Amino acid sequence: MSTFIEHIVKLTSHRDRDLLELTLSKALIDLLPLERIVIARVVREEGVSRWLDVARLDAKGGGRVIDPQRVDFQTLMKLEDASDRLRCLETRERVEVAWAGPEGPRITLLPLFSDSRQEDAGVLELHSDAALDADSLALVDALRQIYRNMYSLLEYSDRDPLTGLLNRKSLDDAFYSAVLEDLDGILPPMDSVGEQERRHRVPANYWLGSVSIDNYGLISDKHGYAAMQDVLQQVARVMSSTFRTYDRLYHFGGDSYGVLLHCPDEALVLAAFERLRANVEKTRFPLVGRVTVSSGFTTVRADDSPASALENTARAVDFARRGGGNKACSHLGLVRRGFFGPVPVLTEEAAAA
């Protein structure tokens, strides 16, 4: 069994927020008399909130880690269908459920975060054969605080300070995670997380998009720096309310934004960027009036880098702007139509798309 100090070292050595939940789970199940630990986060889509079990680990071995971008949202449990979790979330206090008598097995739930920010809502769910004693609960609180501190530190380094969206650096990490072989849902030994050698594979339905504000330079020259800062923040808020909570939204600087998402159908991706276009167009910008955006997106291929994929999205954005702006364009769709490079050989299904 690893010591408490060893687990603190592991928990504070990460540079990837996505690995923190796994490391916390391993520490808790290694140091405490637990049968199972589940970390559940709240994800939202079109105003509906559901539970996503992002990590699950059993004392007897085995576990699962879930990529939020690759889940079927409609199959997830609604918030109200897990009343104990919801009570823990709402009260921000520990909830204990003795489901087989007062001295028997129980589930202890604790809020994962100390504040009530919607984007960070989640709970720790600890399954044990008996009630956890005061020392065990104190250890949980200590590890939970270390987790929060690391999460906040990494989030700060990953975020654009103006808009609150992710920054360009964090795109590289997420991008390479998307195009590397996934873990097939099985949790590897925690000592090897981050060091294990992974093979490239063809990614399943990942898409990268770029979004730019039309006539940004002209608007800035006319209305000034402060007004444009307000526009940049407001566009970021529209993006956050348009896309799903588990889509990754970026601000690269200036008028340039990005979106990394997982979706099974190109038409659905186009529809998402069309919703963004329409939502920005109908938004009132008090300091500058009407604002529109142009978007371009591309499928992520196994041999892509962030730079090469962004180059494809930039070409699609440029095509939209040369057509008058206020448009969303698929790079793949433009290639099919012969605008960029040789026209690929199409199957009947691809041609119909």
Results as ranks from 00 to 15, higher is better:
Glu155Val: 09
Asp141Gly: 10
Arg199Leu: 15
Glu90His: 12
Gln234Cys: 11
Tyr257Lys: 00
Val293Ser: 00
Leu183Ala: 11
Pro286Cys: 12
Ser256Met: 09
Lys282Gln: 14
Glu80Asn: 10
Asp133Trp: 00
Glu197Tyr: 11
Ala174Cys: 13
Thr163Ser: 10
Asp214His: 07
Arg301Trp: 03
Ala27Lys: 00
Val300Leu: 07
Arg315Tyr: 04
Gly258Leu: 07
Gly104Trp: 07
Glu281Gly: 01
Arg87Ile: 13
Val48Thr: 11
Leu22Ala: 08
Ser2Glu: 09
Glu274Met: 05
Asn167Arg: 03
Tyr206Val: 08
Tyr246Lys: 02
His251Lys: 00
Tyr156Trp: 06
Cys88Lys: 00
Arg70Ser: 13
Asp133Gln: 07
Glu195Phe: 02
Leu109Thr: 03
Pro188Arg: 04
Leu28Ser: 00
Leu268Cys: 03
Pro33His: 08
Leu270Ser: 06
Leu154Lys: 02
Arg159Asn: 06
His251Gln: 07
Arg117Asp: 13
Phe243Ala: 09
Gln233Arg: 12
Glu93Lys: 15
Arg70Gly: 01
Ala272Cys: 07
Arg36Trp: 01
Gln118Phe: 14
Arg94Met: 15
Arg106Thr: 03
Val259Gln: 02
Arg144Val: 05
Thr23Asp: 03
Leu232Asp: 03
Arg50Trp: 06
Leu79Asn: 04
Arg199Gln: 14
Glu96Thr: 15
Leu76Asp: 04
Gly253Lys: 02
Met239Glu: 05
Ile213Trp: 04
Ile8Asn: 00
Phe175Met: 12
Ser25Ile: 03
Ser256Trp: 03
Phe319Val: 05
Leu31Phe: 07
Gln229Ser: 12
Asp214Arg: 08
Tyr257Val: 00
Glu6His: 01
Tyr257Leu: 03
Glu155Asn: 09
Met1Trp: 02
Gly61Arg: 06
Leu89Ile: 14
Val179Ala: 14
Gln74Leu: 14
Asn167Gln: 09
Ala134Gln: 10
Arg168Met: 12
Leu183Asn: 14
Asp160Asn: 10
Val179Pro: 00
Val179Gln: 06
Met228Tyr: 06
Val42Ser: 06
Leu183Gln: 07
Arg50Ala: 13
Gly253Ser: 07
